[in-house]
Design a protein around this nucleic acid. Sequence first.
DNA 1: CTGTTAGCGCGTTCAG
DNA 2: CTGAACGCGCTAACAG
Lengths: 322, 322
Amino acid sequence: MTVSNVINGNRQFVGEETRRRVIQTIERLNYRVLSSGRNLRLGRRQSIGVIIVDEQSDFMSHPYISRMVSGLCGVLNANGYSMVVQGIHPDEFASTFAMRRAEVDAFCVRLHGQEESRARMLESLQKLQEPIALVQETLPHSGDNRCVVRQDDYGGALLMADHLAARGIRTLHVVLPRFRGPMVGARLRGLEDGFRAAGRSVEITPITCDPNTFSTVYDTVQKHLGSGPLPDAFLGMNDELAIGALRALQDRGFSVPDKVRVAGFNGFNPAVYTKPSLTTIVSPAREVGAAVGETLLARLEQGVFRQQELVLPVAFRKGDST
Amino acid sequence: MTVSNVINGNRQFVGEETRRRVIQTIERLNYRVLSSGRNLRLGRRQSIGVIIVDEQSDFMSHPYISRMVSGLCGVLNANGYSMVVQGIHPDEFASTFAMRRAEVDAFCVRLHGQEESRARMLESLQKLQEPIALVQETLPHSGDNRCVVRQDDYGGALLMADHLAARGIRTLHVVLPRFRGPMVGARLRGLEDGFRAAGRSVEITPITCDPNTFSTVYDTVQKHLGSGPLPDAFLGMNDELAIGALRALQDRGFSVPDKVRVAGFNGFNPAVYTKPSLTTIVSPAREVGAAVGETLLARLEQGVFRQQELVLPVAFRKGDST
DNA sequence: CTGTTAGCGCGTTCAG
DNA sequence: CTGAACGCGCTAACAG
């Protein structure tokens, strides 16, 4: 008991001399608290589960995910919580052991796929009766034991529309991933509203392609170029898509930004690697992760989510591609 | 007890009818095993700690790390282990709670910094008396309770040297990060040996710069270009460095690969985004992570590391930049 | 095949 | 200020 008091800093209960001896002995024996014992006694796990749903096994390499996880990890560790990460294929969601074992106090979840499938996964998750923070999600927030942390994609699209409208863009080809993330809708709406607010009309044409490989995007845009007139600009729903389009255009001999403009979304490293550098909307991915951590920790402490939705601002970054 | 037997699949001890009732009740009650109880009883944690030492808080965004973690996570989860991730600043290594709490069965560690500092961190870690797998490490393997999993950087450099020698490169500027990773030495040696084996002499000049920002690399190489004759080729110790050099060269009006060649190391996405695409050595980062998982799991099961060092092959990938 | 007993390491409670 | 008793949820061992 005295050892426990020393470790947990209950100085009131321990004499200074005893304290010294205990610390010395802990050092000598390399003693560490066994989490399972403490957690069993205390009825908590002192850890947060991070669930990333993705079809690829390389779920951690998406720039958004890795930054979000970094931000979350920093906040959790600074507060004595550990972070348990799991990448799950959508088809295996229900059978994963995160669902069968109680080992975390709350979840940070990044869903993936069509709305119907996301809703199904969320429902399974809710059954666990643990607080859930959803990242970049648009599902209606019905439950009172969950919240959403996302960035202002609609606002970002407004900024982008403003910029493009000012440059006289009237025809815009938007390059979309095959699985439209939940925030794509917000961006598309923001684009239209932004042009309208600027008093310009715009004709938006979607180009859908599998984002997972650069060459697929490249080929899709190349093929697309042969099938109609060149638009005033291409906008990728993320930087990878925009870069694929950029390279396809350049290889066809269209000078960017003189002949056609290109812009992206997310603002991660590759956007500055290109020539010309990419105009883009910078995602506060790390801040989103940090906000998830703070929200979850507050929820655990206070027993209730203070707000059901947290929206972080994005920033417009002008490159040379527009 | 019967419930426990049902959950753990000890069918021999449970009647079919009872089994059905138990499963049904588990379903109805949303019952899940509490890991802390089970682990306390069983004397294990059923989880692996991943420690990434980095000065940046955004430790997960390095392409090598994120891929390695993805690969590791897949293997662990498939075997019922969870993955506890922690990013640690080198200065805070000793005080981090991973060192004060026993909550994992083994560690996967990615050290960072000068050799002396890495050795110190490793020593603290060893005190924990738990199996350790070191990623991309060159420290001498003294302990019998640890192993190293790395890629064949020396062999990769041989391949690169071969390629460059065949193109008649005689002067080579190597762009290095400020903190030389442990594998940089192997690459440098491989380069020299490779040229020697090809019967060509080469003059290697190191250029050191902070890799964390694209603009720093860009500026460093730009400045360097003014201070001497143009070499036959630039080689970045990773793709980011190579791309920085590539762009600096292009903006100075030097055509790549006609006037000067450029190559990198690691082979992650941005290497194919550039124009011209980058010749590089492809890292098996995900395979390294998977191998760490398998090695650690085998160690836990068999009580001993089968081998102290695991070296995975790399691949040469020709781009248009050479 | 089913249920009882015991103890894993910890921290709360309370007696000394 | 120190330590003894107890029980958190789980499963190995064993009794019925």
